[in-house]
Design a protein around this nucleic acid. Structure first.
Lengths: 258, 258
DNA sequence: ATAATAGTGTCTCTTAGACATTATGCG
DNA sequence: CGCATAATGTCTAAGAGACACTATTAT
């Protein structure tokens, strides 16, 4: 096999698709300060009406990777093109798919990434891009749409991936400000994994005091050496915490760490 | 973009590489029956001396996927070609890699799979394939070799992957006979994840009696309704167990299941 | 005072972990 | 009997889980 003359049929491209997730806050109206509602959202783009395949359909952002870049670089490039977000965002490779017929244009595998984006980074979104091109959907709405290609399945796979990561790694940090309250952390976990239910008092105590989990988050202190608090969720100030670099490794065969 | 005339440069192929792991038993000599030693092994193939790239190097088995098959089918095809093993084996996609220069032949990404193979399936290996073509290596030996392309890195990635899976899923079953003793399970886990150390008496009790883990394995009963035992590891017979279909979901935020 | 969330206390039952003890079967 | 592994028992400290209660701040 040489570079110039091909003996075999080769792929018609190696696209990278990317499911960009964010969690949006919706302040509830009322005279008393109350916890914002949070929803998981995903960014979709509308294919042009002139597209050869799936014209006018909503799809995951994506595009062809190039010979001169890595797959992750291609994913970051797409992210930048669609949302103007830089590389200070976490992306993860979910899987690579190909099966005959998945793309009418030919032999077209797809490397699927997902990105976890803090809501604050998507603020300028509708301003920066053409009004009807990229749009943030509530997750249920996105799942209910008929997406281009096999993107419904890719979206479900990405969702499964981040749900799993949410429970087994500290990716919750990607959706949170640097300093957050216990309640905010709890709410983020529940937003991504609705099945996660626990008495929040126990959640807090176990997170802070048990051997296997203490060290995961720590109190944030101000210049005066006193713990910092915030009143953004309630009139009564709540203490702020931050993630450390500790990532517990867990096991089904014993409790906690190995 | 059409199927016939390409406007853009496209990949020069989409290879699938596969790290085939197995656990070998080596009976220790002696007059008393004692536990076999177990080692993690990986299958490598030797590249022909006529290869354009890395001639004579050991490499992960692999080959080009085709337009007419899925990626998993390509992986199973490679597995079949190298080991004559059928589809009754578990494979998992680890990751897809590409970066400029990773293959001197051109734009060559690689989809990495790993397979977990019961030792019994590899028995006919050296007989069925050319003597010097495919060989089972002890893992440390394989890691110490200079492998073709970036296969050292791919092998390390695969190893990280199965170590993680070993602790968080029931893939241990792939290395075990259908019925196994607690000790055998314990030994398999330790073989793949040496850091896993626990008093085996506690391991057994917790596995069988705690809320979050009971249901993972169950006793095996014979036709007479009595629990089955084996004396393959010791003179004193030990009770046999089997995995159920239960796969616990675990979390860093609480103990056990969500 | 009241709304809403933050934070503490308490009690019981389960589990983790360390370690000792007994049991089985064969040479 | 001695060897190697299997299986059971015991004790303490830690954690899970349920739930009641107190605290803080702005309106």
């Amino acid at each position: 096999m040489t570079t110039s003359t091909k003996k075999y049929r080769t792929p018609d491209g190696l696209p990278v698709d990317i499911a960009i997730f964010t969690i949006t806050s919706h302040a509830k109206p009322g005279s008393y300060k109350t916890l914002a509602e949070r929803k998981l959202g995903v960014l979709l783009v509308k294919r042009s009406e002139q597209s050869a395949a799936y014209p006018g359909y909503w799809a995951l952002p994506g595009g062809f990777s190039k010979e001169t870049e890595t797959l992750a670089e291609a994913a970051y490039r797409e992210l930048k093109e669609e949302t103007n977000i830089g590389e200070d965002v976490r992306i993860e490779q979910v899987k690579t798919v190909y099966y005959p017929g998945r793309d009418p244009r030919g032999w077209m595998p797809s490397v699927l990434y997902c990105a976890l984006v803090n809501e604050s980074l998507l603020l300028g979104l509708t301003a920066d891009s053409d009004a009807d091109e990229a749009q943030l959907f509530d997750l249920e709405d996105a799942l209910a749409l008929p997406l281009a290609f096999d993107h419904n399945e890719l979206l479900r796979d990405s969702l499964t991936h981040i749900r799993h990561q949410m429970m087994t790694t500290t990716i919750a940090r990607e959706f949170l400000p640097k300093s957050f309250t216990i309640r905010e952390l709890y709410q983020i976990i529940q937003t991504v994994v609705p099945a996660f239910e626990e008495d929040i008092a126990n959640f807090k105590r176990n997170l802070l005091t048990t051997k296997t989990r203490s060290g995961l988050i720590r109190e944030v202190f101000g210049a005066d050496g006193k713990p910092l608090t915030t009143d953004r969720n309630s009139n009564r100030p709540a203490q702020l915490y931050e993630f450390t670099t500790y990532e517990p490794k867990i096991s089904i065969y014993n409790s906690g760490i190995f």
